[in-house]
Amino acid sequence: MAEPLLSVRGLRTHFETPEGTIRAVDDLDFDVFEGRTLGVVGESGCGKSVAARSVLGIVEKPGRVVGGRILLRTHAGDTLDLAALPQDSAAYRAIRGPEIALVFQEPMASFSQYYTIGNQITEAIRLHLRLSRSAARARAIELLDMVGVPQPSRRIDEYPFQLSGGLRQRVMIAMALACDPRILIADEPTTALDVTTQAQILDLLRELQAKRGLAIILITHDMGVIAEMAHDVAVMYLGRAVETGPVADIFAAPAHPYTRALLRSIPTVLAKPRTHLPTIAGSIPMPSARPAGCAFSPRCSEVLGDVCRQTEPPAIGEGARSVRCFLHGGAP
């Protein structure tokens, strides 16, 4: 396979709180390739969103990237370690927008209600591409047209609250693509939308990917969305990837008990009526009270014994596939 556009190794993002250190992201590895979608999946609170923000360098205090490397191949062709850049440096700001962009959950809350969408889109264009006011506006109209906003030259002067949820998310995508990024991080982009709109937005993302060779990091807790959209999958549990691999392999033969549990909990039309959907026992522990050994061991139905509760399983696997579980070897 080609060299990845973005390669994250051993990423650690910790939050120093008076109650102790919260290790939101702890030793996370993943790769993102041009024209492919990496699905990052996991329950709420597993560190998906923090991982996305760490890549963009917009982790909020008291959070801080404390370790690991975020290697980005830029437009210019050189490789930068973003983890080594100060978050508020001009060099990092030049990455946000032109190299990596973000689309996230609630399109209503993600726009300011005090400025027109045109104002919010052109702002980034003028900042990074140094275009004149009118050229930036023309480009914004073009972008709105591209993402399927009807009557873009009229809509550009409207405020976010005047648009429907689906349109707002399209505008959000247009805004993210304003400076031609090669990597798009979509953090639960369809969670707040109804099912029909959700399908339309996912179609749009796929179409844009095909046209522009966009690399997409799709963060979701919805295995159905992963099945539909992703090429590769990283299953996250308590701040680390417990299993990674091509989507077909993972769905066909999930290796980690956590992945299996997630797959079992997808509702299907083929299920027997009036039966309960299987759930995962227990709930996700606080990241400040991470269990010793394998973090999933207290909830795991296939736990091997003390080895799981005392030793952290290493990543095992060949090629693109890797899993952190003693069921597959690696036990000391």
């Binding site: 923000r53 963009l56 917009i58 508020d88 700001r93 030049a94 990455i95 946000r96 927008g97 032109p98 962009a101 973000l102 996230f104 959950q105 609630e106 809350a109 993600s110 726009f111 300011s112 702002e123 980034a124 900042l127 990074h128 959000m172 805004m175 993210a176």
Partner: peptide, 13 residues
């Protein structure tokens, strides 16, 4: 609010 994150993600100071 999320819109602040959006603004930061655009690379504004």
């Amino acid at each position: 609010r999320p819109y602040v994150v959006t603004a930061r993600a655009k690379g504004l100071t």
